[in-house]
């Protein structure tokens, strides 16, 4: 028995030593490879930068044709995308990416590991490699699992203007509001307009898609869809009304402020809260008094929203002083004092 354990420990130790030597060797090679890639990036970077910014007309040198080519080009272009996207010519980044990476990515999408495929999808999106649109769509159609690969595939397709994914938003099993917004933010005006047409013309729109579309437009202050969002404040569904109010807070405007009056007395606390937020966001001074009444609302979130938004209104600080001095409600007094000392500074 003892000899069995001696052998067991000995074998395990030996296996670990072999692994250690292997990993140490692998790390040495990795460090050397990294240095090679960095040297290649340093060599190519000036030319690539000049070409992408437009100061160099002829195409820059091709990267050395070795196994580090893909990594070097990816990092080079990625650095440029992140450095200053506005100052650079995105089309030229796409052109270079398609020239050096497309063939490799076609292979990865078919035969790569899960992590390699996802990394490849990230770069297809970042470099806007439109010539891979068909491969991307076919890859999406072949996916069965709704994991990060699926999500990234849809994100990349949205960036490449792949119209067929609009249909997916209606037919796929429910996608989360957050994820749909991720797709919307990547779509160009044409694709977005097509999608809006679908939403307005169809009787059955998935709830999350509608929510995402309403809130997304507010966040982007998308004027073209402001009337659509505003009319949703009258929808018969509570959740839709709330999303519309949230979106109008982001727009920081409302065409007819009187439509807000009823919401201060709504039976739903979320509507009272958003009424206070919207009055604050749109600087609707006429709603100071209804907001002051919300300081004693039974729901904390409503009270806080009223307190958080009243300071910015004309005469708001005086009203806060008044509440701090005279309110019968202890919390109302506290939150009024708190907001006064914060002087309207809110967390970013």
């Amino acid at each position: 028995m003892a000899s069995f354990f001696v052998w067991l420990i000995g074998i395990l130790l030996m296996v670990q030593f072999i692994l250690l030597i292997g990993l140490a060797g692998w790390k040495t090679v990795m460090i050397r490879n990294e240095n090679t890639i960095n040297a290649e990036i340093t060599r190519l970077q000036p030319q690539y930068k000049d070409y992408v910014s437009g100061s160099l007309l002829s195409q820059p040198d091709a990267p050395a044709a070795n196994r580090f080519q893909t990594a070097a080009v990816e990092r080079l272009l990625e650095n440029m995308v992140h450095a200053d996207a506005n100052a650079l010519n995105g089309k030229r980044i796409t052109e270079l990416a398609q020239l050096h990476l497309s063939e490799r990515y076609k292979v990865v999408l078919k035969k790569g590991t899960w992590a390699e495929r996802i990394n490849c999808l990230y770069f297809i999106e970042d470099f806007k490699m439109v010539e891979l649109r068909e491969e991307l769509y076919m890859h999406y159609k072949g996916l069965h699992k709704r994991d990060e690969e699926y999500r990234q595939c849809l994100r990349a397709a949205a960036v490449l203007g792949e119209g067929r994914i609009s249909e997916a938003l209606f037919t796929e099993p429910p996608l989360s509001v957050g994820f749909i917004k991720e797709l919307l933010v990547r779509m160009d005006a044409e694709l977005l307009s097509d999608l809006a047409g679908h939403i307005e013309s169809r009787k059955e729109v998935p709830q999350n898609l509608l929510f995402a579309f309403i809130t997304f437009n507010g966040e982007q202050k998308n004027e073209a869809f402001f009337p659509f969002v505003e009319q949703m404040i009258h929808d018969e569904r509570k959740e839709v009304r709330i999303k519309a109010m949230k979106s109008l807070c982001d727009y920081e405007k409302i065409s007819n402020p009187s439509m807000l009056a009823g919401f201060f007395k709504s039976v739903f606390w979320e509507e009272r809260m958003y009424a206070a937020k919207l009055a604050g966001a749109c600087k609707l001074d006429e709603y100071k008094k209804p907001m002051a009444l919300l300081f004693t609302d039974p729901v904390w979130w409503v009270r806080f929203a009223a307190a958080d938004n009243i300071y910015g209104l004309e005469g708001g600080s005086n009203l806060l002083k008044d509440i701090a001095a005279t309110s019968n409600d202890a919390y109302a007094r506290d939150i009024a004092k708190h907001m006064l000392t914060r002087k309207g500074r809110v967390a970013s």
Binding site: A115, E116, I118, N119, Y122, D126, R155, K181, E182
Partner: peptide, 19 residues
């Protein structure tokens, strides 16, 4: 499975996402 995943790309969009 995840050791080669590009971690920075994975969270890139989240930093500007209001959700």
């Amino acid at each position: 499975r995840e050791k080669k995943l590009n971690r920075l790309e994975q969270i890139e969009g989240m930093s500007i996402n209001k959700d």
